[in-house]
Design a binder for these strands. Structure first.
Lengths: 127, 127
DNA sequence: TTCCATGCAAACAATTTGCAGCAGT
DNA sequence: ACTGCTGCAAATTGTTTGCATGGAA
Protein backbone atom coordinates (compact mmCIF):
# COMPACT_ATOMS: atom_id res chain seq x y z
CA UNK A 1 0.00 0.00 0.00
CA UNK A 2 1.86 3.01 -1.29
CA UNK A 3 0.95 6.60 -0.54
CA UNK A 4 -0.34 6.84 -4.10
CA UNK A 5 -2.65 3.91 -3.81
CA UNK A 6 -3.87 5.30 -0.51
CA UNK A 7 -4.63 8.59 -2.22
CA UNK A 8 -6.65 6.75 -4.87
CA UNK A 9 -8.55 4.83 -2.22
CA UNK A 10 -9.29 8.04 -0.38
CA UNK A 11 -10.34 9.73 -3.60
CA UNK A 12 -12.79 6.94 -4.31
CA UNK A 13 -14.17 7.27 -0.81
CA UNK A 14 -14.52 11.02 -1.28
CA UNK A 15 -16.33 10.44 -4.54
CA UNK A 16 -19.09 8.61 -2.69
CA UNK A 17 -21.66 7.35 -5.11
CA UNK A 18 -20.78 9.62 -7.97
CA UNK A 19 -19.05 6.91 -10.05
CA UNK A 20 -16.12 9.09 -11.03
CA UNK A 21 -13.98 8.89 -14.14
CA UNK A 22 -10.24 8.36 -13.86
CA UNK A 23 -9.74 12.10 -14.38
CA UNK A 24 -12.05 12.86 -11.48
CA UNK A 25 -10.32 10.33 -9.27
CA UNK A 26 -7.07 12.04 -10.22
CA UNK A 27 -8.40 15.45 -9.22
CA UNK A 28 -9.65 14.11 -5.89
CA UNK A 29 -6.47 12.16 -5.24
CA UNK A 30 -4.38 15.29 -5.72
CA UNK A 31 -6.05 16.81 -2.70
CA UNK A 32 -4.54 14.04 -0.63
CA UNK A 33 -1.25 13.81 -2.49
CA UNK A 34 -0.66 16.78 -4.78
CA UNK A 35 2.31 15.17 -6.55
CA UNK A 36 0.43 12.12 -7.80
CA UNK A 37 0.46 11.60 -11.55
CA UNK A 38 -2.46 10.75 -13.78
CA UNK A 39 -0.71 7.67 -15.11
CA UNK A 40 -0.32 6.40 -11.58
CA UNK A 41 -4.02 6.82 -10.98
CA UNK A 42 -4.76 4.79 -14.12
CA UNK A 43 -2.29 2.12 -13.06
CA UNK A 44 -3.76 1.84 -9.59
CA UNK A 45 -7.33 1.83 -10.78
CA UNK A 46 -6.60 -0.91 -13.30
CA UNK A 47 -4.85 -3.00 -10.71
CA UNK A 48 -7.74 -2.58 -8.31
CA UNK A 49 -10.23 -3.57 -10.99
CA UNK A 50 -8.17 -6.65 -11.74
CA UNK A 51 -7.99 -7.62 -8.10
CA UNK A 52 -11.68 -7.00 -7.61
CA UNK A 53 -11.38 -4.08 -5.21
CA UNK A 54 -13.07 -1.74 -7.66
CA UNK A 55 -15.59 -2.08 -10.45
CA UNK A 56 -15.16 -0.54 -13.88
CA UNK A 57 -18.34 0.75 -15.46
CA UNK A 58 -18.45 1.18 -19.23
CA UNK A 59 -20.55 3.93 -20.70
CA UNK A 60 -21.23 4.83 -24.32
CA UNK A 61 -19.26 7.78 -25.66
CA UNK A 62 -17.34 8.45 -22.53
CA UNK A 63 -14.56 7.59 -20.19
CA UNK A 64 -14.86 4.55 -17.97
CA UNK A 65 -16.29 5.15 -14.54
CA UNK A 66 -15.16 3.52 -11.33
CA UNK A 67 -17.03 2.30 -8.29
CA UNK A 68 -15.43 1.35 -5.00
CA UNK A 69 -18.70 -0.19 -3.91
CA UNK A 70 -18.25 -3.79 -5.00
CA UNK A 71 -21.42 -5.10 -3.40
CA UNK A 72 -23.67 -6.73 -5.95
CA UNK A 73 -25.70 -4.00 -7.49
CA UNK A 74 -26.48 -2.63 -10.85
CA UNK A 75 -26.24 0.76 -12.46
CA UNK A 76 -28.59 2.96 -14.39
CA UNK A 77 -27.17 5.66 -16.58
CA UNK A 78 -29.16 8.78 -17.27
CA UNK A 79 -28.88 9.53 -20.96
CA UNK A 80 -29.76 13.13 -20.19
CA UNK A 81 -27.04 14.16 -17.79
CA UNK A 82 -24.71 11.17 -17.74
CA UNK A 83 -25.13 10.53 -14.03
CA UNK A 84 -25.02 6.94 -12.86
CA UNK A 85 -27.34 5.74 -10.14
CA UNK A 86 -27.18 2.57 -8.09
CA UNK A 87 -29.90 -0.02 -7.84
CA UNK A 88 -29.49 -2.38 -4.92
CA UNK A 89 -29.02 -6.03 -5.58
CA UNK A 90 -32.26 -7.17 -4.03
CA UNK A 91 -34.11 -4.99 -6.51
CA UNK A 92 -32.56 -6.65 -9.52
CA UNK A 93 -33.21 -10.14 -10.67
CA UNK A 94 -31.37 -11.61 -13.63
CA UNK A 95 -31.90 -15.14 -14.79
CA UNK A 96 -30.26 -16.81 -17.71
CA UNK A 97 -31.37 -20.19 -18.90
CA UNK A 98 -30.21 -22.55 -21.61
CA UNK A 99 -26.60 -21.53 -21.47
CA UNK A 100 -24.62 -24.25 -23.25
CA UNK A 101 -23.19 -26.35 -20.46
CA UNK A 102 -19.63 -26.09 -21.65
CA UNK A 103 -19.78 -22.32 -21.30
CA UNK A 104 -18.84 -21.12 -17.86
CA UNK A 105 -20.56 -17.92 -16.81
CA UNK A 106 -18.40 -15.65 -14.71
CA UNK A 107 -20.37 -12.56 -13.90
CA UNK A 108 -23.14 -10.29 -15.05
CA UNK A 109 -23.17 -6.63 -15.63
CA UNK A 110 -26.54 -5.07 -15.99
CA UNK A 111 -26.71 -1.51 -17.17
CA UNK A 112 -29.97 0.22 -17.81
CA UNK A 113 -30.48 3.55 -19.41
CA UNK A 114 -32.94 6.01 -18.00
CA UNK A 115 -34.04 9.57 -17.87
CA UNK A 116 -33.61 10.74 -14.31
CA UNK A 117 -36.06 12.94 -12.44
CA UNK A 118 -34.12 16.14 -13.08
CA UNK A 119 -33.70 15.52 -16.77
CA UNK A 120 -37.33 14.58 -17.14
CA UNK A 121 -38.34 17.88 -15.62
CA UNK A 122 -35.82 20.25 -17.07
CA UNK A 123 -35.08 18.57 -20.34
CA UNK A 124 -31.95 16.82 -21.47
CA UNK A 125 -28.96 18.31 -19.84
CA UNK A 126 -26.15 16.61 -21.64
CA UNK A 127 -23.04 16.82 -19.56
CA UNK B 1 -29.79 5.47 -48.54
CA UNK B 2 -26.41 6.21 -50.06
CA UNK B 3 -24.13 3.64 -51.59
CA UNK B 4 -21.94 3.96 -48.50
CA UNK B 5 -24.72 3.22 -46.07
CA UNK B 6 -25.73 0.30 -48.24
CA UNK B 7 -22.19 -1.02 -48.08
CA UNK B 8 -22.27 -0.78 -44.28
CA UNK B 9 -25.60 -2.58 -44.13
CA UNK B 10 -24.24 -5.31 -46.37
CA UNK B 11 -21.09 -5.54 -44.30
CA UNK B 12 -23.14 -6.04 -41.16
CA UNK B 13 -25.14 -8.74 -42.90
CA UNK B 14 -21.92 -10.42 -44.03
CA UNK B 15 -20.61 -10.29 -40.48
CA UNK B 16 -23.47 -12.50 -39.34
CA UNK B 17 -23.28 -13.03 -35.62
CA UNK B 18 -19.67 -12.11 -35.17
CA UNK B 19 -20.38 -8.71 -33.57
CA UNK B 20 -17.74 -6.87 -35.57
CA UNK B 21 -15.80 -3.77 -34.62
CA UNK B 22 -15.97 -0.65 -36.77
CA UNK B 23 -12.65 -1.64 -38.35
CA UNK B 24 -14.04 -5.01 -39.31
CA UNK B 25 -17.19 -3.45 -40.72
CA UNK B 26 -14.92 -1.17 -42.71
CA UNK B 27 -12.98 -4.12 -44.11
CA UNK B 28 -16.17 -5.92 -45.07
CA UNK B 29 -17.76 -2.79 -46.51
CA UNK B 30 -14.77 -2.25 -48.77
CA UNK B 31 -15.59 -5.50 -50.54
CA UNK B 32 -18.84 -3.93 -51.61
CA UNK B 33 -17.53 -0.42 -52.14
CA UNK B 34 -13.74 -0.28 -52.26
CA UNK B 35 -13.61 3.52 -52.08
CA UNK B 36 -15.48 3.84 -48.78
CA UNK B 37 -13.63 5.64 -45.99
CA UNK B 38 -13.28 4.56 -42.39
CA UNK B 39 -14.72 7.84 -41.15
CA UNK B 40 -17.81 7.23 -43.22
CA UNK B 41 -18.25 3.82 -41.66
CA UNK B 42 -18.04 5.37 -38.21
CA UNK B 43 -20.51 8.08 -39.18
CA UNK B 44 -22.99 5.60 -40.58
CA UNK B 45 -22.69 3.20 -37.67
CA UNK B 46 -23.24 6.01 -35.17
CA UNK B 47 -26.27 7.23 -37.05
CA UNK B 48 -27.70 3.73 -37.19
CA UNK B 49 -27.15 3.25 -33.49
CA UNK B 50 -28.90 6.54 -32.81
CA UNK B 51 -31.85 5.58 -34.99
CA UNK B 52 -32.05 2.15 -33.44
CA UNK B 53 -31.16 0.15 -36.55
CA UNK B 54 -28.02 -1.20 -34.91
CA UNK B 55 -26.88 -1.93 -31.37
CA UNK B 56 -23.55 -0.81 -29.96
CA UNK B 57 -21.91 -3.28 -27.61
CA UNK B 58 -19.34 -1.99 -25.15
CA UNK B 59 -16.48 -4.21 -24.12
CA UNK B 60 -13.70 -3.60 -21.62
CA UNK B 61 -10.33 -2.68 -23.13
CA UNK B 62 -11.46 -2.78 -26.70
CA UNK B 63 -13.25 -1.18 -29.57
CA UNK B 64 -17.02 -1.06 -29.58
CA UNK B 65 -18.76 -3.90 -31.36
CA UNK B 66 -21.87 -3.60 -33.49
CA UNK B 67 -24.86 -5.84 -33.93
CA UNK B 68 -27.42 -5.52 -36.70
CA UNK B 69 -29.66 -7.94 -34.86
CA UNK B 70 -31.79 -5.61 -32.80
CA UNK B 71 -34.14 -8.26 -31.48
CA UNK B 72 -34.14 -8.32 -27.69
CA UNK B 73 -31.27 -10.49 -26.68
CA UNK B 74 -28.25 -10.29 -24.52
CA UNK B 75 -24.57 -10.87 -25.04
CA UNK B 76 -21.94 -12.90 -23.30
CA UNK B 77 -18.34 -11.98 -23.79
CA UNK B 78 -15.66 -14.64 -23.50
CA UNK B 79 -12.83 -13.19 -21.46
CA UNK B 80 -10.53 -15.76 -23.02
CA UNK B 81 -10.84 -15.00 -26.71
CA UNK B 82 -12.99 -11.88 -26.81
CA UNK B 83 -15.76 -13.49 -28.84
CA UNK B 84 -19.29 -12.36 -28.15
CA UNK B 85 -22.14 -14.85 -28.14
CA UNK B 86 -25.86 -14.23 -28.27
CA UNK B 87 -28.35 -15.42 -25.72
CA UNK B 88 -31.92 -15.29 -26.93
CA UNK B 89 -34.38 -13.08 -25.21
CA UNK B 90 -36.57 -15.85 -23.85
CA UNK B 91 -33.56 -17.21 -22.01
CA UNK B 92 -32.93 -13.98 -20.17
CA UNK B 93 -35.11 -12.51 -17.52
CA UNK B 94 -34.32 -9.17 -15.95
CA UNK B 95 -36.52 -7.59 -13.35
CA UNK B 96 -35.93 -4.35 -11.59
CA UNK B 97 -38.08 -3.29 -8.69
CA UNK B 98 -38.23 -0.18 -6.53
CA UNK B 99 -37.08 2.17 -9.22
CA UNK B 100 -38.01 5.68 -8.06
CA UNK B 101 -41.18 6.50 -9.92
CA UNK B 102 -39.87 9.74 -11.35
CA UNK B 103 -37.08 7.86 -13.09
CA UNK B 104 -38.03 6.62 -16.52
CA UNK B 105 -36.28 3.43 -17.56
CA UNK B 106 -35.47 3.27 -21.24
CA UNK B 107 -33.67 0.04 -21.91
CA UNK B 108 -31.50 -2.64 -20.45
CA UNK B 109 -28.23 -3.96 -21.59
CA UNK B 110 -27.17 -7.17 -20.02
CA UNK B 111 -23.65 -8.31 -20.62
CA UNK B 112 -22.24 -11.38 -18.98
CA UNK B 113 -18.70 -12.55 -19.01
CA UNK B 114 -17.86 -16.16 -19.60
CA UNK B 115 -15.24 -18.62 -20.57
CA UNK B 116 -16.38 -20.27 -23.77
CA UNK B 117 -16.02 -23.95 -24.54
CA UNK B 118 -12.87 -23.52 -26.63
CA UNK B 119 -11.12 -21.36 -24.07
CA UNK B 120 -12.06 -23.70 -21.28
CA UNK B 121 -10.46 -26.57 -23.16
CA UNK B 122 -7.41 -24.96 -24.65
CA UNK B 123 -6.72 -22.29 -22.10
CA UNK B 124 -7.07 -18.57 -22.43
CA UNK B 125 -6.52 -17.48 -25.94
CA UNK B 126 -6.46 -13.75 -25.59
CA UNK B 127 -7.15 -12.24 -28.94
C1' DT C 1 20.72 -5.47 -3.97
C1' DT C 2 16.45 -6.61 -5.86
C1' DC C 3 12.03 -5.37 -6.78
C1' DC C 4 8.15 -2.96 -7.66
C1' DA C 5 5.85 1.60 -7.92
C1' DT C 6 6.35 6.23 -9.43
C1' DG C 7 6.52 10.82 -12.39
C1' DC C 8 6.80 12.32 -16.68
C1' DA C 9 6.23 12.50 -21.35
C1' DA C 10 5.68 10.23 -25.43
C1' DA C 11 3.06 6.75 -27.76
C1' DC C 12 -1.10 4.60 -28.82
C1' DA C 13 -5.88 3.20 -30.21
C1' DA C 14 -10.41 4.38 -31.11
C1' DT C 15 -13.16 7.75 -32.63
C1' DT C 16 -14.54 12.37 -34.16
C1' DT C 17 -14.23 16.40 -36.88
C1' DG C 18 -13.09 20.34 -40.32
C1' DC C 19 -13.11 21.10 -44.79
C1' DA C 20 -13.63 21.09 -49.68
C1' DG C 21 -15.95 18.57 -53.22
C1' DC C 22 -19.89 16.07 -54.97
C1' DA C 23 -24.68 14.02 -55.52
C1' DG C 24 -29.27 14.30 -55.32
C1' DT C 25 -33.40 17.13 -54.95
C1' DA D 1 -28.71 26.64 -55.29
C1' DC D 2 -29.42 24.09 -51.10
C1' DT D 3 -28.72 20.25 -48.37
C1' DG D 4 -26.61 16.45 -46.69
C1' DC D 5 -23.11 12.90 -47.31
C1' DT D 6 -18.48 11.78 -48.57
C1' DG D 7 -13.11 11.14 -48.63
C1' DC D 8 -9.27 12.52 -46.48
C1' DA D 9 -6.36 13.91 -43.02
C1' DA D 10 -5.69 16.11 -38.87
C1' DA D 11 -7.30 16.54 -34.27
C1' DT D 12 -9.19 14.79 -29.88
C1' DT D 13 -9.97 11.77 -26.19
C1' DG D 14 -9.02 8.20 -23.11
C1' DT D 15 -5.56 5.24 -21.80
C1' DT D 16 -1.13 2.79 -21.82
C1' DT D 17 3.79 2.49 -21.82
C1' DG D 18 9.07 3.22 -21.77
C1' DC D 19 12.35 4.92 -19.10
C1' DA D 20 15.10 6.70 -15.46
C1' DT D 21 14.55 7.38 -10.60
C1' DG D 22 13.39 6.33 -5.72
C1' DG D 23 11.87 3.82 -1.80
C1' DA D 24 10.92 -0.42 0.74
C1' DA D 25 12.22 -5.17 1.94
Amino acid sequence: MTAQKMAVVNALRDAGRTHPTAETVYALAKRHLPTIALGTVYRNLSKMVESGEVVRILVPDGADRFDADISDHMHILCIGCGKIYDIEENNVKVEISNVPEDVQLIRFDVMAKCLCADCKQHGLNKK
